[in-house]
Each structure stands twice: as C-alpha cells, then as structure tokens.
C-alpha cells in the first residue's frame, strides 16, 4: 500500500527526528539560530516571492473574486485537510479532538456540499488544529534550530520535518482522491493561501515591509506564536526588563 517514495520519506524523517532529539537547543534561550546566514538568504528569496508574486496576486484575487466564492474555495481546501488533522489527533491520543474533527469533516462534506459550506461552524463544532510538528512536540521533541523554509516561510527543524511528514505521509485525502478532484484540491489550496494573505495583509505587510529587520521580526513572531500555540514552555519565551537592574 505504501509507495516506494513514502518508505524513503519515513526513513529520512525518522533519521532526522532522532538526530533532532539528540541535539536540541540549549534550554532557556529565546532564539536558537545557528543557520542564520542561510536563513537570511532564504528570507530574501521569500520576501521577493511575496513582493513580486504572492502579494499582488492575492490583491487581485481578493478584488476580483466575490467573497462567498472565496470562502467556498477556502472551506473546500480546509475541509480536505481535516482527515490529516484527525490522524495527528489520534497519534496524540486526543480522542476528543479526533472525534470532533471527524464529525466536522462528515457534516461539512455532506450537508456542506463537499466542504464548500461550513455548517459545522454555526453548530459550534470548531476545527481542532493539529499537525505532525505538534505530535512530535507532545512526544518530547524540542523545536531545534530556527529555519526559514523556501516558500513555506518561518519554521524550525521539528516543524519543518513535521510539514514534510504531513504532506507526504499523513494526508489521507491525497491517497483517496483521484484526478480531477486532486487538481480542484490544489487549486483550492492556492485560493486559500491567497485569501489568507489578504486577511492578514496589514500584519504581514507591517512585519515584512515596515520593520527595520524583517528577518529577525518574522523569526520572533513565528517562534513566540508557535510556542504559544503548542503551549510549549521549554524555551524561555519572554524578557523581564527589571532583571537587568536588580
């Protein structure tokens, strides 16, 4: 059932994870970025990609496509990502979230017409976000070095590996869907990204284009927000400004 490519991915991912667990960051540090030079290069690339492609296209998309259509497209994409989240819920032994997400998927896929509508939301059945990076964290894997990924943006060693595992291995929708649905799905994911780029446009623009060091700023925003999401207290997140003077 598993293709050859998936076996390789499992092998590589396992190897990287073991490596990761062995060398973590020194605990108590806010930012561990030994690959800063490389990361800054990637950041410059990503920023160019945003400035020249993502930002203008997302503005056009937002202006041209009516809201209900945009929402429908994003809902479709988000619905198909639910099975993957359920897998991670289960891996984390979070059966409440697994059940919740499953119900959500079933309701939206049927009553929501293949996920275009989101009746679950009005029922109060919200999405319980989960990804493999989070699963690794629950297993005690530290975040490792900061890494800015090409195209995907700020991440860290653990979450970067998690991303690959999620995309290649743990995505039931990619195993079960056939063409042309797979291309609809890809298209919808693009639409989802474009819409999000505009919704968070002001904050993203502020960090990328109005700060004195967009790399350091996006690194900080990513790390602090991710640790908050994961309720990860292993790194010393915050400054105590009075401690200097004691």
């Amino acid at each position: 059932m598993f293709e050859y490519g998936n076996r390789i991915t499992i092998l590589i991912a396992t190897g990287l994870i073991l490596l990761l667990s062995a060398c973590g960051q020194r605990s108590g540090e806010m930012v561990y970025d030994p690959f800063e030079r490389l990361n800054r290069g990637t950041h410059a690339f990503n920023k160019g990609l945003d400035r020249n492609l993502l930002s203008p296209v997302s503005k056009g998309y937002t202006a041209v496509v009516p809201d209900p259509v945009k929402n429908g497209i994003s809902n479709f994409a988000s619905n198909l990502s639910l099975p993957g989240k359920v897998v991670n819920n289960i891996l984390q032994l979070d059966m409440f979230a697994a059940t919740s997400n499953t119900f959500r998927f079933v309701i939206n896929s049927t009553f929501g017409l293949a996920g275009i509508f989101d009746p679950s939301d009005s029922m109060g059945l919200e999405e319980r976000d989960a990804d493999f990076g989070q699963t690794l964290q629950r297993l005690g894997v530290g975040e490792g070095a900061y890494a800015e990924l090409p195209i995907f943006g700020p991440s860290n060693m653990r979450d970067g590996i998690g991303l690959i595992v999620d995309m290649v291995l743990l995505d039931p929708a990619s195993y079960t869907l056939k063409s042309p649905v797979t291309s609809y799905r890809t298209g919808s994911r693009v639409g989802e990204v474009l819409q999000k780029r505009q919704i968070y446009g002001d904050q993203i623009d502020e960090v990328l284009y109005e700060s004195a060091d967009s790399y350091a700023q996006s690194r900080l925003v990513y790390l602090q927000n991710r640790r908050f999401q994961l309720k990860d207290t292993s790194s010393d997140a915050y400054i105590d400004p009075y401690s200097d003077l004691e």
Partner: peptide, 25 residues
C-alpha cells in the same frame, strides 16, 4: 504594565528587535 503579549507575541521582544535593528543601522 511592562509588556503586552498578543497570541504569544511580546511587544517588548518585538520592540527590542526593532529598536536594535534601527540602532544598528
């Protein structure tokens, strides 16, 4: 108050990065 933290992101940390960069330049 000496810090505001929004969804985990600290104003103090963010301004330290920003002012630090402005000072460097």
């Amino acid at each position: 108050f000496f810090d505001i933290i929004i969804e985990g992101i600290s104003l103090l940390s963010s301004e330290r990065v920003e002012i630090g960069a402005l000072l460097d330049s």
